[in-house]
Computed example of a mutant assay.
Amino acid sequence: MKLDITTLEGQSAGSVDVDDAIFGLEPRADLIHRYVRWQLARRQAGTHASQGRSDVSRTRKKIYKQKGTGSARHGAASAPQFRGGGKAFGPVVRDHSHDLPKKVRALALRHALSAKAKDGSIVVLDKAAVAEPKTKALRGQFGKLGLINALVVDGSELDANFSLAARNIPNVDVLPVQGINVYDIIRREKLVLTRAAVDALEARFK
């Protein structure tokens, strides 16, 4: 498969041959879904918690005698049915993450890249670098390229000026190639890869 290469100024810079085993697969939604669930579950903090009946600071004394009152039997004011008592079956601190095989994660990433390629939503830049960290100038260049909602993936090292200029543009994310992931790919309309990122991805999957 051939992809056209463009510059930030919108000029043609040739083309690049990409591997069909990475960009030419028939996308499988089930693999992409499994990866996104795994990724978001790992991100979830799991620090939510509530006080149970053993955690609240209330007396443990039996509030009234067991028999003869005509009321239900109770042992402590910390029971959930009383105001100020503990919460029954409340959330506890826990880890929400689950396992996903490494080969499945790698395959899901290839299918996400292939899905963008199939939709014609991949833009290949010769390089993601600017002379000055000017957000207004970079936004104008993105506008010429039709990049309103995009993920920009560069090589292993990001250009400092480009990162500074892009970080205040809404709906635009910039990542090094080692940080590429399925969730960020599918949440943006366009995937912008530099020539260095394409070479790094092909080397990674070979």
Rank of each mutant, 00 (worst) to 15 (best):
W38V: 00
P91T: 14
N181A: 11
A29W: 07
G90T: 01
K102L: 13
D4A: 13
E9I: 04
Y64F: 12
R204G: 01
A21V: 01
K61G: 09
N181I: 09
V174P: 04
I5G: 01
A112S: 15
R195L: 10
R60K: 15
G84E: 05
G14V: 12
T194C: 07
I32K: 03
R43F: 07
S15F: 08
F205Q: 10
A106L: 12
D173K: 13
L25Y: 08
G75K: 07
S97F: 01
K61D: 06
D30L: 03
R58N: 08
G120L: 12
V56R: 10
A129Y: 04
F142P: 10
Q81E: 11
N168Y: 03
V36K: 05
I5F: 03
K65E: 10
L175Y: 08
P91S: 11
S97M: 02
G70I: 13
V182R: 12
L3S: 01
S121Q: 15
I180K: 13
V56E: 08
G10N: 06
S156Y: 05
G179R: 15
L113N: 08
K127W: 06
H33F: 15
R94Y: 02
H74A: 12
W38K: 06
T7W: 00
W38R: 11
A106F: 00
D119M: 12
V198K: 07
K116T: 05
Q39S: 15
T7R: 05
L151R: 09
E9S: 14
K62N: 00
L100V: 14
A108R: 07
R187S: 12
G46W: 02
G179Q: 15
F205H: 14
L31A: 03
V124L: 07
R139T: 09
Q178N: 13
H96E: 07
N161R: 03
G143A: 03
F89T: 01
G52T: 10
R94K: 15
L201H: 06
K118G: 00
L40W: 00
K2T: 11
K102R: 15
M1K: 04
R53H: 04
L40C: 03
G179T: 06
G75L: 01
E26Q: 14
G52S: 12
V104Q: 15
R187P: 12
A197W: 10
R139L: 11
T6W: 04
L40K: 10
S12R: 02
V56Y: 07
P101T: 12
Q11I: 01
P80H: 09
S121N: 14
V182E: 12
A45W: 03
K116C: 11
N149A: 02
R94E: 03
R105E: 09
A131W: 02
A117M: 11
R195K: 15
S54V: 04
G24Y: 06
I122D: 03
H33K: 10
S97N: 05
F162K: 05
Q66T: 08
K61Q: 14
D199P: 02
A200R: 09
I5P: 03
R28K: 15
D20L: 02
E202F: 00
A21W: 00
G24P: 09
N168M: 00
D184Q: 14
N181Q: 01
L201Q: 05
D154K: 00
